[in-house]
Nucleic acid binder design. Structure first.
Length: 480
RNA sequence: GGCGAGGUAGCCAAGUGGUAAGGCACGGCUCUGCAAAAGCUGCAUACGUCGGUUCGAAUCCGACCCUCGCCUCCA
């Protein structure tokens, strides 16, 4: 069965298939690089990664494009405050973003275009919109006329909303003297005339100096790299309006073709039941979480624990649980690999072709993924299967051929979910602790348990925990 | 006010008509000098409240109570 995914525009489940029958071409709205992305942003990027991995596990080639927004109000303002060039400023945060992505095991997109590098392309698009009557120039800025596009609002169901623009901040500054009907949504800026506070950040255009509006970059870059009609376009749920609505309008007004065949939106992340916001001080970045000793893999795991269309509650407790769950998977992976006699643990992606006709226990887990990327259901099914296979491994009833089939089914899931099973290196205990532990081990061997227990208590009081193994001991930092 | 999402065990969270997945935590067992580790095992007569439809509802309908998002930059 192919992958079924909910489509925001039609509000139905649709089968994911590349229009060209080979390569699935999709675009993801990427980060604005003016600071560290927070873990809510990463929920969206992780889900997009899983979408891509699932398609690949299904056997399709993919072409994944995710932009970098490196020119907008925020990047311009912040770079000037730091007295850096826009380029220097955004480069710094772009690198940081890439580091975070790597920690989360996100596959790098095939194309990662920057808005600044595609200003010409955006100007071209705006020019066409003016020519065909969908846009107009006003005081050196260019606006898209939403009245010229009757389809406007289909994605976000604007017609069913009482949209008013007479609230503070809802008006474009350049519209002050305008007589636009206040009961309609506002025309949006395609090009913004140069303002003094933009500093050196402006470009030449047929309408004078200025810079592109935010929405136009995604239309320009997605169509340049993926064609007039994308197989899928995606982003966080809050981009539905106005960003994606505007993208549809400006793109389709130029091409006359459907902009995207499928719209994929990821719901928001809560932190300990609260919306993330600067004022609550709970804007969590990856660094902050990792500083507390959690790994990118654990964070990724937590982000998979909820279905992408429902809000997910990120909690420290869930993070702790994720570590245990991942450890269990890693142990299973090792045990199964041994029985399956796999020499190279890195299979890459065992896709459906390779799994054709192979019977294994992870079929239900895969089906869960095919069913609207139900990652929590998939994780549940993985553990059900894992338990069953583990039992057979333990009682020796799993032959190497069947073990190999289980291995393929198992690894496909691990690939699709993007789980990395290497365990982080255990922290090294200081020498004095090792000495105490050695002494304890000697005492224990002599069956002098009183001394041994006393030494263990001493070690514990210094923050370390002794764990005996069959022929040696291990040291780990105390839990508390 | 309009549009949308959600309220399932201590925590996280699946399940859209057939009698409550899974992970963590917790209890028990095996093993062990003890502890740990590992494996096994137990753990919601119950799904926000109240009505209704149905042989049967967490799942459908109605009303109500909470929480959250969007409507303005936002993943």
């Amino acid at each position: 069965m192919p992958i079924q995914l909910f489509d925001t525009l039609s509000r139905t489940y649709k089968t994911l298939t590349p229009a060209d029958g080979e390569t699935f071409r999709f675009y993801c709205c990427g980060p604005t690089v003016y600071g560290a992305a927070h873990i809510g942003n990463f929920r969206t990027f992780v889900l997009q990664d899983i979408l891509r991995r699932s398609l690949e596990a299904e056997g399709w080639a993919t072409r994944h494009t995710r932009n970098i927004t490196d020119v907008d109000d925020k990047t311009i303002r912040e770079s000037q405050e730091e007295r850096k060039s826009l380029r220097e400023f955004t480069e710094f945060w772009r690198e940081r973003f890439h580091r975070d992505c790597a920690a989360l095991n996100l596959l790098p997109p095939h194309v990662e275009p920057s808005a600044v590098a595609h200003v010409d392309r955006q100007i071209e698009l705006i020019q066409k919109l003016i020519e065909n009557g969908h846009a107009y120039v006003e005081n050196g800025s260019v606006y898209f006329s939403i009245q010229s596009f009757p389809e406007y609002g289909r994605l976000s169901h604007l017609a069913e909303r009482e949209l008013t623009t007479d609230r503070e901040g809802a008006q474009h500054q350049a519209h002050d003297q305008d007589e636009y009907e206040r009961e309609t949504a506002a025309d949006f800026a395609l090009w913004k005339a140069r303002k003094p506070e933009d500093g050196p950040n402006y470009w030449e255009s047929p309408w004078g100096e200025g810079r592109p509006g935010w929405h136009i970059e995604c239309s320009a870059m997605s169509m340049q790299y993926l064609g007039a009609t994308l197989d899928l376009h995606s982003g966080g749920i809050d981009l539905i309006f106005p960003h994606h609505e505007n993208e549809i309008a400006q793109s389709e007004a130029v091409t006359g073709k459907a902009f995207a065949s499928h719209w994929f939106h990821v719901a928001h992340l809560l932190v300990e039941d609260n919306k993330m916001s600067k004022s609550l001080g709970n804007l969590l970045t990856l660094d902050e979480i990792m500083e507390k000793g959690h790994t990118g893999q654990e964070i990724r795991y937590v982000l998979l624990e909820g279905h992408y269309r429902h809000p997910l509650n990120f909690t420290w407790g869930a993070l702790k649980a994720a570590r245990k769950a991942l450890q269990r998977m890693a142990r299973f992976d090792e045990a199964l690999r041994r029985v399956a006699k796999v020499s190279d643990p890195d299979l890459g992606c065992p896709d459906s072709k390779r799994l054709h006709g192979v019977s294994h226990s992870f079929e239900k887990a895969w089906s869960a993924l095919e069913n609207d990327l139900n990652t929590p259901e998939a994780l549940g099914q993985i553990f059900v299967a894992l338990k069953r296979v583990q039992r057979e491994i333990d009682n020796g009833s799993l032959g190497s051929e069947r073990a190999n089939h289980e291995w393929l089914g198992w690894r496909r899931m691990i690939y699709a979910l993007g789980i990395r099973l290497e365990q982080p290196e255990a922290p090294k205990p200081p020498e004095e602790i090792v000495k105490l532990a050695d002494a304890r081990w000697e005492a224990k061997k002599k069956r002098d348990f009183a001394t041994a227990d006393q030494l263990r208590e001493t070690i514990r009081s210094r923050g370390w925990q002794v764990k005996d193994r069959p022929d040696h001991y291990e040291l780990a930092p105390s839990e508390e």
